[in-house]
């Protein structure tokens, strides 16, 4: 039964992901992407990581997809015509993907050791503490990254004088 839930969620992720890259309307693509990310959140809940699931919904679906929709609606001429999602290199790219897929399948067959031992769910307190101890440097460094991204967005986006 539990496995069935997993396969349903996995199938939903694949289905929506294919729609993202085949849809001819960029707005539709972003909606399908939202569905893909929601399904991934479902996977997190299924795997007993509710905090990650909630964050996934809040950040990706609530934040990033909303940003995508704004960007599409505010940018002229990209929301209103059908877009082409393929180019001349489709066959070559497909070949590369097939090779990667074969490699990954091969790897999964050889190094799957059944389910991992069920560990205790990590509490929010532990998460918070690791953020200011083990992960303090990455945590602080992200501030610099975000600041640079923000200043960069303003520098690139502001009107030409």
């Amino acid at each position: 039964m539990a496995e069935l839930v997993f396969f349903v969620i996995a199938a939903a992720i694949c289905f929506f992901a294919v729609l993202v890259v085949t849809s001819h309307d960029i707005f539709h693509s972003s909606v399908w992407l939202a569905m893909t990310l929601l399904s991934v959140a479902g996977l997190y809940f299924y795997l007993d990581a509710p905090f990650l699931g909630v964050i996934q919904v809040l950040v990706y679906v609530g934040g990033i997809i909303t940003l995508f929709v704004f960007a599409i609606k505010l940018t002229a001429h990209i929301g209103d015509k059908s877009i082409v999602q393929t180019n001349r290199q489709t066959i070559f790219a497909g070949l590369c993907c097939l090779i990667l897929f074969a490699l990954l399948m091969n790897m999964l067959q050889h190094s799957c050791h059944g389910p991992f031992p069920h560990s205790e769910p990590i509490s929010l307190k532990q998460l918070g503490q690791s953020l200011v101890s083990v992960y303090v440097l990455p945590f602080e460094f992200i501030s610099l990254l975000l600041l640079a991204a923000m200043v960069g967005a303003i520098a690139i986006g502001r009107d030409k004088k």
Partner: peptide, 24 residues
């Protein structure tokens, strides 16, 4: 690997901005 990823990503992000710096 987390720190490597973050630092490389920061290098990339700032590089994109600097590469497109001449808007004209």
């Amino acid at each position: 690997l987390l720190m490597i990823y973050l630092a490389v990503e920061a290098v990339s992000l700032i590089s994109y901005i600097l590469a497109g710096y001449h808007k004209k």
